[in-house]
Nucleic acid binder design. Structure first.
Lengths: 205, 205
DNA sequence: TATTGACTAACGAACGAACGTTAGGTATAA
DNA sequence: TTATACCTAACGTTCGTTCGTTAGTCAATA
């Protein structure tokens, strides 16, 4: 009755290792040790090492599509924005902090992000994925937010793409910092608060 | 009379390879091939593979200390600021664009940056170096610039640390984008121009 | 000037260990 | 009975490294 989950364990361990060492520098033996089986047993579940990477990437991609805050937002949908009208600077700061906590601590998302970071100069497919997930989707999301806040007359009218870059880039940089030095998370959260407050002040209508 | 430079050629090829594949995923044979010698000959110049990495890091560090725009600036030194008084938004945009071109195309700086990017989750020393070079020094530099522009009454008074984060982070993000997709450099340069112009507008006195 | 010897950089060959992978056997459970 | 998950053993290849040799350079010596 117990469904066998070795395959999932392998994928999880693989993402763990790829997110620290990268694909090439991770060996089949390392991976097998992490799962607690012999390395030959991996081949009962995957055709070869590349197949493991492909499946991990597939999993990361699917997890992203299912759980990404940024890819799923729709600022033109009243259903999506109805609980976001009349947001103050503090409200937005809290919202962003919550999103950052999620992005930082969700294991799939954070390990996927690190893997893309490591592989971005060797694997063209992963480089593209990196740009989409950590640049284009983020920028789109915050451009939507800026347009929404301008429409609501919370912020003054200016190029929303540039506003989004100015608003989101510090957050992106601070997420990378926390990936490297997790003990600085609280320091970063305070910076985020200050950043959002100051952003709203200077862009206020 | 000709000074032998094989050692330098090895270091250059090593940085090339480490900046794409990382240290572990780069083999001694690959490196020897890139230099055009047999792999055993590498050991006439370095004790072992780790010694090559250590020396490459040392070289990157020295190159950074000698050539980094950010580590060498001193906004309290009149000698440094004397040609920077009365800068308009366009002047600053041009200045930043020039600095970005340099940072993007100087081979040592760009390859060093990529190597640190790849190694940041496995090598604590390189993670620290990454934070210093691409976060702390950058933030310090731009905090200095903000203080300078506030002192000059070009910009209004606000938290210069937050201003520096808002000003520099988009630039950091765009440099990373260009590292991944160099063909987007001109698009990025236009974004930088817009960003700087808009930044000066909203923060104007 | 010619000879010697010390030093160097590069080499081919080989080392044991680890790599990714395959084959074949065994135990478990449907 | 058949299929599956895991095993041990081994494959050929590549890994980082060591060894002993060779060819060339250069300074001191004869």
């Amino acid at each position: 009755m117990e469904k066998n989950n070795t395959r999932e364990e392998i994928l999880e361990a693989a993402l763990d290792l790829f997110a620290v060492n990268g694909y090439e520098a991770t060996s089949i033996s390392q991976l097998a040790d992490a799962v607690g089986i012999r390395k030959a047993s991996l081949y009962s579940h995957f055709a070869n090492k590349q197949d493991i990477l492909d499946t991990v990437v597939e999993t990361v991609l699917k997890g992203y599509a299912d759980h990404s805050i940024f890819a799923r937002a729709d600022w033109n949908n009243p259903e999506y924005t109805k609980d976001k009208t009349g947001m103050t600077a503090e409200d937005v700061a809290k919202l962003i902090q919550g999103q950052m906590r999620y992005i930082l601590h969700d294991t799939h998302i954070s390990k996927g992000r690190k893997m893309l970071m490591i592989e971005q100069f060797r694997n063209a497919e992963l480089a593209e994925l990196h740009t989409k997930q950590n640049y284009e989707d983020v920028l789109n999301y915050f451009t939507g937010l800026m347009r929404f806040l301008i429409r609501e007359e919370t912020l003054k009218n200016a190029d929303p793409g540039i506003m989004a870059a100015q608003f989101s880039s510090p957050i992106t940089v601070w997420i990378n910092l926390c990936d490297r030095e997790p003990e600085r998370e609280e320091e970063v959260m305070e910076l985020v608060r200050k950043h959002v407050m100051q952003f709203f002040e200077i862009y206020q209508k």
